[in-house]
Every structure is written in C-alpha cells, then in structure tokens.
Simulated assay, not measured.
Amino acid sequence: MLLASAGVMSGVAQAQEKGTVNLAYVEWSDAVASTNVMRAVLEKAGYNVELTSLSAAVMWQALATQDADAITTAWLPTTHADYYGRVGDQVEDFGANLDGTKLGLVVPKNSSLDSISDINTHSDELGGKIVGIDPGAGMMGVTEEAIEEYGLDINLQSGSGATMTAALEAAIKNNEEIVVTGWTPHWMFARWDLKYLEDPKNAFGGAEQIHTIVRQGLEEDMPEAYAILDNFEWTPKELGEVMLMNQKEGSDPYQNAKQWVEDNPEIVSEWIPETATSS
C-alpha cells in the first residue's frame, strides 16, 4: 500500500511539475471525441489537463487571449474561416490532424429530395425549416450563405448537435421529410442510411480538414505538450470508432477515450515524443 501511495504521489508531483494544459472545445460529437482522446494522451505523458466547453466563437477567442492552450477541432479552410480570419495572427496552426471531411445538407436516403435546389418545392413537407445546430457554429453561417445562394424560402432552425440528431431520428421513425445540417465524420452516418443533397453551386465548398490550433507561447511554456499536439494525426475511421463508443447509453467520453488510447498503443506512440515520460 505504501508503494502504491508513493507511486500515486509521484505521478501527481510529475503532473504538477509539467503543468496543466487547457483544451477548449465545442459540444460537437467529433470535438468531444478528439478532445478527450488528446486529454488521455497528455495525461499519459504526465500533464494535468482541463477541458473547457465553449461556443465556437468564444473557443477561438480563448486561444487568442491565451485563456486556452489548444483546440483539436478547427474546421478549415471554410467552416471556421471567419474565426481564423479574426485571430489567425494570434495563434499557431499545426495544420490538419484529420483529412477527409465534408459539409452539406443531409436527408434520409429514401428522401424524395436529391439536391439543395429541391428544397423550395418541398418546403411544406419540411415544416418550412432546415434543422441546424448551435447558433455560433461556423456550419450555421455557411448554411445561411447557402440558403441565400440558392434563393431558398426556408428558415434555418438553431439548436444543438443533440437536438439535430434527435429531430433526424424522429423523422426517420415517422417516415417524414427532413433536412439537417451535416458533416463527415459523424456517427449519424453509421447509425442511419443518409445522403448529402447535391450542391451544384458548391455553396458548401470542397472537402475540408480538421486542424489543431494552439496559443502563442505554448512551445516555450510546455514543449512536450506542444510536440504531442503537433504530432496528433488520425483518420476518419479512428475518430469514428471513438464517436460510436460515445453513443452508447451511459458511456463516459473520457473513459472511452482512455480505453481507445490503451487499445491503440502503436497510433498513440507516434504522437508522444521519446523525451516524454509516461505518468
């Protein structure tokens, strides 16, 4: 027992010595997954980690003011372009940690809608609305621009990622038409048969990437944490594994992340520098 206690105290002292990394994120399924995985990895390397859930705009501002150390969920070059344009000279962009993303409007696969252009003729069936997510999300801004680009006579309903998927589930169960804001990677594509509406005007742009962004000065303050964040890179399949784990009723995203980290040592070892000491 004394040896165990000594080991615990040693780990605590090491974490205190290395410092605390504050990761900011938005309550999106991909962000929850990636942020908790990064938390587990940084803790494995001996850091304390605090997670702060914020709106997208505040998240970016927190990096600029150095109230947050890093984010792993910056959608660029389109979705978060406005936020990055405001604070880009006050943060450091590590580039993509994930390739293969997509944005657009999503419907059940058996929907009679095939293109964004079809929305006006089905407005009544859609209840006069597109179901969106939180009002501060970059996805909502892009969707508003798409509505204008296509001349759609329809409202964009804000809410959250959870309310959007709940509305989608209800519509599918009742065999009703619905259009939601969607993106890949997202667990909903594994759960239901869905399709993106065609976007002939390319209003949602091409494929995007998810970037890791850190505050200025992080390299000097916590060089090992800086290196881990810089090394972080994975695939949509790997992110999807964690997102699906998080959809199990009663599951804990942090515990799921720790389990994924333990189950994937070869991937994680590529992120942690050889100089980092495990806790």
Rank of each mutant, 00 (worst) to 15 (best):
T165C: 11
Q14A: 12
S278W: 12
T78P: 07
K129C: 05
I116Q: 05
I178A: 01
L126P: 00
R215K: 10
M38D: 07
V142L: 08
A170D: 15
F232G: 02
K195V: 05
W183V: 05
S53V: 11
N120F: 10
G182A: 02
P223G: 05
D230G: 00
G240W: 02
E125N: 14
D118Y: 04
L51Q: 06
V131D: 13
G161R: 01
T20P: 10
S112V: 14
A170F: 09
T35W: 11
T143F: 02
F189W: 14
Q90G: 02
L23Y: 07
L113Y: 03
E270P: 00
N48P: 11
A227H: 06
A170K: 13
G151K: 01
Y47D: 03
Q157E: 15
E43Q: 11
D199F: 08
T101A: 11
L98C: 02
G240V: 01
L105V: 09
D93F: 04
A40T: 04
D67Y: 14
Q255D: 13
R191W: 09
E149D: 15
I116A: 08
E176F: 08
T165S: 15
Q157I: 02
S123F: 08
I228L: 02
K44N: 00
E266F: 01
A190N: 15
W187L: 04
S34Q: 12
L194R: 03
M1N: 07
N97G: 03
G240R: 05
N48F: 13
M164E: 10
Q255H: 02
L244W: 02
V58A: 14
N202I: 09
T121H: 13
Q16M: 12
L54N: 15
E238F: 00
D118I: 04
I147N: 04
G138A: 06
G95S: 00
A96S: 10
A203H: 03
V21K: 10
I178T: 03
I267R: 06
A31E: 12
P200G: 09
L218W: 00
G46L: 01
A190V: 11
W60P: 05
E176W: 07
N246K: 09
P108C: 02
L51I: 08
P185I: 03
V49T: 04
G205N: 02
S55W: 08
K237S: 14
G19S: 05
T121A: 15
A24D: 14
V26Q: 15
A33N: 04
K173S: 11
N175F: 05
G88M: 04
E176K: 10
L63K: 01
L156A: 04
V214E: 00
T277D: 08
E148P: 02
T121C: 04
T101E: 12
L42W: 10
L239R: 13
V268C: 04
A68L: 13
Y226W: 05
T72V: 14
G136Q: 13
R191D: 13
Q259W: 05
A45H: 04
V49F: 03
I172R: 10
R191A: 11
K201C: 12
W271M: 07
T165K: 12
Y25C: 03
D193P: 05
A167P: 07
R191S: 10
W28K: 12
K195I: 03
D69V: 09
A166F: 12
N155A: 15
Y196H: 03
K109I: 00
M59W: 08
D82A: 15
D153K: 07
T101V: 09
A33I: 05
M222S: 06
V107I: 10
I172Y: 12
S111C: 06
Q66R: 13
G128M: 01
T163F: 06
A24E: 13
P108Y: 04
